[in-house]
Design a protein around this nucleic acid. Structure first.
Lengths: 226, 226
DNA sequence: GCGCCTCTGTCAGCTTCCCGTAAGCTGGGT
DNA sequence: ACCCAGCTTACGGGAAGCTGACAGAGGCGC
């Protein structure tokens, strides 16, 4: 899941990136409203974490612009101000949730999950393909009810595929989700992860298969014949 | 198990922390209703021990707020007042149990265990993984029916893992349960306990294994191949 | 009080394994 | 037959975790 974090404090930004990564989010961090606008024009995000106290003006402006465009990407507002007034303004302008600093990382993650679980969204608590089950909350994989041990990256790739099971996922999309904007992809990392995933899935007797669509991407689907 | 203790008498608070620790509870102590609200916003507790005679107002307010939010965390009310009226008010407002000062520490512990054994809870009297059995009441561990002797800390870690057997438990979660809010975690204490647990379990011929999930945490599961 | 012991948390050095890269191979499509 | 996308294997750097030793804090018996 790819997020945009709008936060001018570089230190906190780095902390968030790291913490969110541990929960399977790839976060792009920007420090100004201007950069936020550009990032939003360039890519689609699953959700946005927005600090209101930005140096170059008001974060609320970003939010308003977004909603004017009928963009319904979930926005979680983050701020040091705790007055009722600010909270009301934020929510009236289209924020979906509100968190006051200082906050616990776990609470941020919990609220993001809640937001992403909303109506139209891509989320149940667990995803299933064949006998492979992915628990989105615990970020854990089961094959025929036995827990499997995958690395963080492997889990991330599998999640993307399973969230779109039966549909093709472009290699580019996977790269973006793994690495965010910092597009350092000087290699075939995705191919390597697909390979490792296939191997482990086969070894564990999974009844799900990752197919290759040449020139397009990958697709996970239930395995047919025994 | 992590508890919140709301008690303004610092001396009694310290005493409770210590006594509860001896029974495997990690208690965060706060002295005011305000602090209690903040603690509850920041973390999840297995149960709450609530003194009604607080300096900054009424402890019952905390309880009411909690129940308004549909939070069903068990609450044990603690008070010097012994009138029937107070007792009734407390229970009507959603307290689960009631204890009048002065009280014996053992009685508090017994009642907490009773509360935690309730309906939705994750509790039978004993937990089992492979041939390892954990008696939650006596807080004792058996491997293939022979009793094992672990230290308090070790038992606490094992309990957390076994209550979530087959699922990943983050290292952070274990720290929080062991040390409460007083997050003095300047080291790799959890790793050390995991190490000691593994060693003892192996030595005693346990058919249960603690797996490491890099960058995430640990997981206990039945050992597969013989 | 005095030694003895266990429990705890810390540290430093070692080991393991993840991650990304690269380089050569395979196979499908034209 | 050739080319290119994707597959496979190998490897080095570095982070995460493991492990053995140790010192302080109690607790216990004497």
């Amino acid at each position: 899941m790819r997020l945009l974090v709008v936060e001018d404090n570089a230190e906190l930004g780095a902390l968030l990136t790291k913490g969110l990564a541990a929960s399977g989010f790839a976060a792009d961090v920007v420090g100004t409203a201007q950069d936020a606008r550009e990032a939003l024009a360039a890519a689609r995000y699953a959700a946005i974490v927005l600090d209101l106290g930005l140096p170059d003006g008001d974060g609320l402006g970003v939010l308003r612009k977004l909603r004017e465009r009928r963009d319904t990407t979930p926005v979680l507002v983050l701020t040091a101000r705790s007055s009722v007034r600010d909270r009301v303004t934020g929510l009236r302008d289209g924020a979906d949730d509100y968190l006051v600093k200082p906050f616990a990382l776990e609470e941020l993650v919990a609220r993001l999950h809640a937001l992403l679980r909303r109506p139209g969204e891509l989320l149940g608590r667990s995803l299933r393909v064949g006998n492979v089950v992915f628990d989105t909350e615990a970020r854990q994989v089961f094959v025929a009810d036995t827990p499997q041990f995958f690395s963080l990256r492997e889990v991330a790739v599998l999640e993307i595929l399973m969230r779109r099971s039966g549909r093709v996922v472009s290699k580019k999309l996977v790269e973006d989700h793994l690495f965010g904007l910092s597009g350092d992809v000087g290699s075939n990392a995705v191919e390597v992860y697909i390979h490792r995933l296939r191997k482990q899935l086969a070894d564990s007797g999974a009844k799900a298969q990752i197919h290759t669509i040449r020139g397009v991407g990958y697709l996970i689907a239930e395995e047919k014949e025994p």
